[in-house]
């Protein structure tokens, strides 16, 4: 069952354009949206949230049109941007009072237990919190009304590894319920390697591919060798190349390369870099 479906989404924003974006997020899975800065990841999430009006296409969340059922859908959505978007003169206690009047399923007990778990002060105003604290508070706010789908837009960018790890733990805890799903946009691919089931790669406003993380890591191989050796690899197998320690490094499709060529398992980051830079 698909929790989120995006079909042929197009949106023009100044000179930038999202073109025919299509992907689905299945219930119980985590989809990572990867791509360079400015590739269109945030614009897609804003279109999904109807903060940007789409030019054309169809977006359904929980099987309902995202614009017609906007308010109803928001009850089941947890949203985190790359910054905490609340007035900075408020404390966590103030936010609890506001959120409990907005969300039908707001769980104050759960909210304060998460604050305690992550050492977030309930008395401090947002403006005195560190960036890491603010982002942890953002995730706690997004989780405390028990959403079914989390939309995360670069939530870990600019955070130190320890805070990022804590946040990923929190997300893994959220995914223990099989009815929960996450759409996680990031250019920090190591975070996605830890939690994503499928990866959608966005480049210059277009979807380059959507694949499961395992098949992505299995389908591609990283070959390292001299330029002379590289000529023996079929050109249609080569996705991208770059100069390497031994001469050249190639990202190849495993299925087109003979087993005589030893291939390493690439990281998602390497796949992304080779895809963008190409041949």
């Amino acid at each position: 069952m698909n929790i989120l479906e995006v079909k042929n989404l197009s949106k023009k924003i100044g000179k930038f354009e999202l073109q025919n974006i299509s992907f689905e997020v299945e219930q119980g899975t985590v989809m990572g949206l990867i791509g360079q800065n400015g590739a269109g990841k945030s614009s897609i999430i804003r279109c999904i949230l109807n903060l940007f009006k789409k030019t054309s296409g169809e977006i359904t969340i929980f099987g309902k049109d995202h614009a017609h059922f906007e308010t109803e859908i928001r009850e089941d959505l947890g949203i985190v941007f790359d910054e905490l978007h609340v007035p900075d003169n408020l404390t966590a206690i103030d936010l609890d009072k506001i959120y409990q009047k907005v969300y039908k399923r707001w769980d104050s007990e759960f909210f304060f237990s998460l604050l305690d778990r992550f050492d977030i002060s309930k008395y401090d105003k947002v403006k005195v919190m560190s960036r890491g604290m603010k982002m942890k508070l953002a995730i706690v706010l997004a989780l405390s009304h028990h959403p079914k789908l989390l939309l995360l837009d670069e939530p870990t960018s600019g955070l130190d590894p320890i805070v990022r790890d804590e946040m990923l733990d929190l997300l893994l805890g959220f995914m223990e319920d099989e009815t929960h799903s996450i759409l996680f946009s990031s250019h920090i691919t190591s975070d996605l390697e830890k939690i994503a089931d499928t990866i959608t790669f966005i480049h210059k406003g277009e979807v380059l591919f959507t694949e499961t993380k395992d098949s992505l890591l299995y389908d591609y191989g990283l070959w390292k060798g001299t330029k002379e050796q590289a000529t023996e690899i079929p050109t249609h197998a080569i996705i991208g190349k770059r100069p390497g320690t031994f001469g050249i490094e190639l990202l190849v499709k495993r299925e087109f390369v003979s087993q005589a060529f030893p291939l390493e398992r690439p990281t998602i980051e390497e796949i992304m870099v080779f895809q963008v830079k190409g041949g």
């Binding site: 949230l49 903060l51 308010t71 928001r74 609340v86 007035p87």
Partner: peptide
């Protein structure tokens, strides 16, 4: 001006 600072919070909430 104050509302502008709160807008981003309200934008993602289930408020018509």
């Amino acid at each position: 001006q104050f509302y502008q600072r709160s807008k981003k919070m309200f934008d993602v909430m289930p408020i018509p």
